[in-house]
Design a binder for these strands. Structure first.
Lengths: 344, 344
DNA sequence: GCAAGCTAGGAAAACGATTTCCATTTAAGT
DNA sequence: ACTTAAATGGAAATCGTTTTCCTAGCTTGC
């Protein structure tokens, strides 16, 4: 073992000790087959004895890639992202990459400043959960020549041809609505996500489509603009339950929102699902432990992370992926927070 | 603006265009006062016109520091860590550092392999939530000469003199117990955290101490070994409520555990807090939206993150911090999941 | 008018790997 | 045995910065 594990050893030291040149050490470490077994063993022994570990910064500089990727999220405390991030981290690890986490607070300026990390060579690519692409693109030029490796996760920008991984939010909105309609609900309130965010707009669109198809009128007063937070679920319920014409069901555009809504309904003395049904979206882990367990349209979170990481790293490594856009299947999990509309 | 934002410009290109040498460009960018205003303006103009952004890998190599730090966590999906990570990220950003996230799955081998990142110069320091220090230390030698900048967060190792930020888990255990004892509970069940983990052992110790002091006997059958997960909360309740002599309260060593416990109690038809009280630890955001809202011993999560990041970066930058150990105050949040022990 | 002290800017040496290009040795095929 | 091909090792260029050391040129004070 080395005397001092933090004294800095350079490859030259190893080469000298082993009586070979640096190229040989480098080859031993990175292309072992290109070195004779005898030399390889010799070098490896010296490397281990001295506790040498190569400086990856130097390698990165020379090779022009850092083997880091960045994930940009609007709010890393949202449990929706946890399984996605974890999976991305795991896959990155397996493929030799590290993950740099960036909380953008949904701020375009921060997004752009983080995106510079690929220009500064700190990261080789970016996974972003933002509908804004943090680079200037000239729409008349081919996209892939203008952009570094980038994957749009869950939240899509409107650019054609940009790699995307996520779900069909219109369908999600529709499925949730149809589930409630199927239970006979006709006064359905909606607590949306952040209003300028596409996933929220699309879920709303799907919801409205379903109502239209079922020939159920939608009372605009039953729409509350939330922001995907628990608090907005609480506030939404409180506001809407003050109306004269109360709804018999809430469609919350996120599980956190739904958990807040359940809380507020309980506070106001409503029983779920006997008096009011609640459905969420996302399928976060805790949703199954709410009271009552939450009916929700679950997203395949692990799968999303898996596709994001694989896609991005393939892009970085120049492997042309077969598909650039992955719309993954969602799934309605019927639990106990939804039930038949109450008879009046 | 530059023609192609990803064509690689080196500092030499700027120097040539501006008719100065590279040193001057570098100085303009990093030590503006050491360059005359005239030259500075000239260089800055060229830099902006050409859209030049320096390669940070090269700078890092030369300077011997990456301006990255790593956070190692056993499970990044645990919402306990979210606010801590977010705060660390924010402070790091303000001080010019990026955060690399590593999920160790509580695996010593992974911890050690991640810790190598400081030897490879990928990161300048580490924040670790593990009681294992991922380096070999010789106890006869001074610690700071053997270790890179490292901060032990929430979960402490037993090494003297290692920087630590967290709470007093013995006191937390005691406070929780005393809260329940104060309500007249004398049969208190415990669902612990992961058994080999120090915070869990310390909470247990505090709990036992409080019972001892109150001269209340503890029935060992009421102790369930959990692992800080929701599932262990569910399993713990199911197991313990099968006993002949049932408890009137549960002390769960984490809010996730408590949320699982509430769920299981509901399933079994117990009312909380009328039949059974439940108290958690951590103070995660969602705990206030459980049914009923969870009484818990809250940790100052943001503050923990703040101290971790500040301490680590000070260490990295050679600023000798005044205090290496920060034990931060916890706070009992009395909500609705605890109440007087039922009369028999 | 001259030494001393400053300031601004240039040339070149680092940082520590990878990789290209050769020269040499070894192996294989006829 | 002789040619050709393959395998191996070495020297040096390279990645793109930062930083040290130095030289001019300018003040300033006496």
């Amino acid at each position: 073992m080395s005397q001092n594990q933090f004294k800095h050893l350079a490859m030259g030291d190893i080469a000298k000790k082993a009586g070979v040149c640096m190229a040989t050490v480098s080859r031993t470490l990175n292309n072992p087959d290109r070195v004779s077994e005898k030399t390889r063993n010799l070098v490896m022994k010296v490397v281990e004895d001295m506790g040498y570990i190569p400086n990856r910064l130097a390698a990165s500089l020379r090779q022009g890639r850092s083997r880091n990727i960045a994930i940009m999220l609007p709010d890393i405390t949202n449990p929706y992202f946890s399984p996605i991030v974890r999976t991305i981290e795991q896959i990155s690890l397996a493929r030799g990459y590290s993950v740099i986490l960036k909380d953008t607070q949904d701020d375009p300026a921060l997004e752009r400043s983080f995106a510079e990390m690929v220009k500064t060579r700190q990261v080789d690519g970016i996974i972003t959960n933002s509908q804004r692409i943090p680079f200037d693109v000239d729409p008349t030029q081919p996209l892939h020549e203008q952009l570094p490796p980038i994957v749009n996760a869950s939240e899509f920008c409107d650019l054609e041809g940009i790699p995307k991984v996520g779900v069909d939010n219109v369908a999600i909105g529709k499925d949730a609505a149809e589930h409630l309609l199927g239970f006979g609900h006709s006064r359905i309130a909606v607590i949306t996500g952040t209003s300028h965010i596409l996933s929220s707009q699309q879920r709303e669109k799907g919801f409205r489509t379903a109502l239209l198809q079922a020939k159920v009128n939608f009372d605009e007063k039953l729409l509350y603009q939330g922001d995907y937070s628990c608090e907005s679920g609480v506030a939404g319920v409180r506001a809407i339950m003050q109306l004269k014409d109360r709804p018999t069901a809430f469609f919350c555009f996120g599980d956190q929102v739904a958990i807040g809504a359940l809380h507020a309904l309980r506070e106001l003395g409503y029983r779920v699902p006997e008096d009011v049904s609640v459905i969420g979206v996302d399928g976060i882990a805790l949703s199954q432990y709410s009271a009552p367990p939450l009916t929700t349209v679950a997203q395949p979170l692990t799968l999303i992370g898996e596709h994001c990481a694989t896609l991005l790293i393939d892009l970085i490594e120049g492997k042309q992926p077969e598909k650039l856009v992955h719309i993954l299947p969602h799934q309605l999990l019927v639990r106990a927070s939804t039930g038949p509309a109450p008879k009046l």
